[in-house]
């Protein structure tokens, strides 16, 4: 059995946005040579997320807007304070909470060397505190 971990970067361009990374994940899976197995996609940032939804711009906007309603950026949060671990104020609890809601990873089976997913499912890196250069990981496990 093989386990391969790949680190990828994405430059987000807005304060909040969904970046479709499906093609990148599929490329990593194909290059791994794994025929049967599974793949995880994980963000390493707590003010971002990884999620799966249909690849439509309208839905992308709805996801971002709905998360903003659930966890508004300008909310009244305990996190709105100086953090000496960072040398600056926190005040991005809204971004962290969106990350909690959307989750930090996605999982798919691999069969026949390809990701098993619905025809309309797309994998997104979700930016909640951009623009930033972000890192995410793709781990392929199988044989």
């Amino acid at each position: 059995m093989m386990i391969k971990l790949t680190k990828l970067t994405v430059q987000t361009r807005r304060s909040q946005e969904l970046v479709d990374v499906t093609d990148e994940v599929e490329r990593v899976v194909a290059e791994s040579g794994v025929g049967e197995g599974l793949v995880y996609v994980m963000t390493s940032h707590t003010s971002s997320g990884v999620l799966v939804t249909e690849g439509l711009e309208c839905l992308e906007r709805d996801v971002v807007a709905h998360l903003e309603r659930l966890a508004p950026d300008q909310g009244d949060y305990w996190h709105n304070r100086y953090l000496d671990i960072d040398g600056r104020l926190g005040f991005n609890a809204g971004a962290h909470l969106k990350g909690v809601i959307s989750g930090y990873f996605a999982y798919f089976p691999i069969s026949g060397g390809k990701i098993v997913k619905g025809g309309r499912q797309r994998v997104y890196f979700a930016e909640y505190d951009g623009p930033l250069s972000r890192e995410y990981y793709v781990q392929v496990i199988g044989e």
Partner: peptide, 20 residues
């Protein structure tokens, strides 16, 4: 010295900050 502990970013992020 300045005491900022965030991760470094490419110059492009700075410019995108201004854009946003």
């Amino acid at each position: 010295v300045f005491y900022i502990r965030n991760r470094a970013q490419p110059l492009e992020t700075f410019l995108l900050e201004l854009d946003v």
